[in-house]
Computed example of a mutant assay.
Amino acid sequence: MKILVNLFTVNKRFPLTISRGTTAQTTNICVKIIENGIEGWGEASPFSVGNHRQSTGRITGALQNITPVLESFNPWQRQEIEAVLRKYQIPSAARAALDMALYDWMGKSVGLSLWQLWGLDRNVIAPTSVTIGINTPAGAATRTRDWLEYMDVRQLKVKLGSSEGIEADRKMLLAVRETAPEIDLFVDANGGWSLADAIAMSLWLADLGIQYIEQPLPRGQETHLATLKEHSPLPIFVDESCFTSADIPQLVDYVDGVNIKLMKSGGLSEALRMVHTAKAYSLKVMFGCYSDSSLANTAAAQLAPLADYLDLDSHLNLIDDPFRGASVKAGRVLPNDLPGLGVQYSAFAP
C-alpha cells in the first residue's frame, strides 16, 4: 500500500484558553493510504499533557520513518500493522492517523460507513457540548452568545482552572450561567485545581446544578482523586489522566467516567477497547477532541452511539477546515451514509 503524509494548518474562529495555555492555530497532519485505487484518510493533531508532548514535527517524523516499513503490507493486515506500530513506539497521534485511514479504506472498499459496519444506531447519539474557554466574565458571556447564535446548543463545557484562582472561575461560570440559563453546563478544569480547591469547587458547582467535573487535578495526582471522590457530590471524569484502556483499571475506584480522544488512544481500534473496558467497570464514556478538523471528529462520530457524552466541537470553531463530514442536527454531531468515514474535501482544501 502507498502512504502519503501532508500537513495542513487550521485557524480557530475564537482562540481557546485552558489552564495550560491558549491555542489559536495548529498544523495538523493528513495521512492517505492508497491501495487498489481506494484512498483511506486519517488525521493527526498535535497535543501536550504535562511533560507528554506530541508536536507536529514529532508526529510527522514518526510517520515518515514508519512509511517504508508499512508499504509492504496491505490494508487488511490490521493486526500485523498495529503490532508494528507498537514495536516502533510510534506516537499515539501518528497511530491514530494511520488507524483512521485504514478504517476509512476498509469502509470504502466494502461501500459502507463505519457506523453501519459496526451495527451502531445513529438515533442514540448524544448532543455534543461546545466549549467556552477561560476568559473574563464579559468575554465568556460574549463567547456563549456567539455559540448560541451559531448553532442549536444543547450543552456547554466551561473551561476553568484560571491562573487567577477559583474566585475568577466562579465569576466566569456565573456569567455563562446567566447568559444561558436553560443550557446544561459541564466543567473541565484541565488539571488546574489543587485538591482543596477541587473539593470546594465541587460543592459549589453542585449547588449550581453542574452535571460533572472533568480532570479537576493535574495528571500525576491520581491518588488524590480518592479523597476528592469522598467529598464531591458530582461525578468525576478524567481526561489527561487516561490515555488508553490500560489506564482504566487503575482509575475505577476514583472516577465515574473517562474522556476518550483518538489522539491519546492511538485511533479507533484502541478507542473501541477503551469503551468496552470502561463499560465493563460501569464507568461513563465521553469522546473528546483537541484541535481536530472535521476529518478526525467525523471519525470519532462513527463511534458516537457508544458514548454517554460527546465533546466533538473543535471543527465547529475553525474558519478554514479543509474537510467536511459529519453534520450537526439538534446539537448532535451525526456521521453520514457515505462509505468509510464519510469525509470529503471542503472549499478550504489546499
Rank of each mutant, 00 (worst) to 15 (best):
M1I: 13
M1V: 10
M1D: 07
L4H: 14
V5F: 04
V5I: 15
L7K: 02
F8N: 04
T9P: 09
V10M: 12
P15A: 06
L16F: 15
T17D: 04
I18S: 02
I18M: 00
I18F: 00
G21I: 01
T23G: 07
A24D: 12
K32V: 14
I34V: 14
I34T: 08
I38P: 06
E43H: 10
A44Q: 12
P46V: 03
V49H: 05
R53Q: 10
Q54Y: 12
T56A: 02
I59G: 02
I59W: 01
T60P: 02
L63R: 02
Q64C: 15
P68D: 13
S72Y: 13
F73M: 07
P75M: 13
R78N: 11
Q79K: 04
E80T: 07
I81K: 01
E82V: 00
E82G: 10
L85F: 12
R86Y: 15
K87Y: 15
K87S: 14
Y88F: 15
A93K: 05
A97K: 03
L102S: 04
Y103H: 15
M106N: 11
S109R: 12
L112C: 11
L112G: 01
W118I: 00
W118A: 11
G119D: 11
N123Q: 11
I132R: 01
G139L: 05
R143I: 09
T144N: 08
D146T: 09
W147D: 04
E149H: 06
Y150L: 11
D152R: 08
V153Y: 07
R154Y: 14
Q155L: 13
L156C: 13
K157D: 09
K157Q: 09
K157I: 08
L160I: 15
G161W: 09
S162H: 13
S163R: 12
A168S: 14
D169K: 11
K171L: 13
M172W: 12
M172C: 02
V176M: 10
E178A: 14
T179C: 14
I183Y: 01
I183N: 05
F186N: 06
N190A: 06
L195H: 04
D197H: 11
M201V: 08
L203C: 13
W204L: 06
R219E: 07
Q221L: 12
E222N: 04
E222P: 03
H231R: 12
H231V: 02
S232A: 01
P235R: 06
F237R: 02
V238A: 08
C242P: 05
F243P: 01
T244C: 07
S245P: 07
S245E: 14
I248S: 06
P249Y: 11
P249G: 08
Q250D: 12
Q250C: 00
L251M: 00
V255F: 03
K261S: 07
K264N: 11
G267N: 01
G267T: 03
L268H: 00
L268E: 04
V275L: 08
A278P: 08
K284G: 03
S293H: 01
A299R: 03
Q302Y: 06
D311T: 01
D311V: 02
L312I: 01
I319H: 11
I319W: 10
D321S: 07
G325E: 05
A326D: 06
A326F: 05
S327P: 13
G331S: 10
R332Q: 12
V333Y: 05
G342C: 08
V343R: 04
P350S: 10
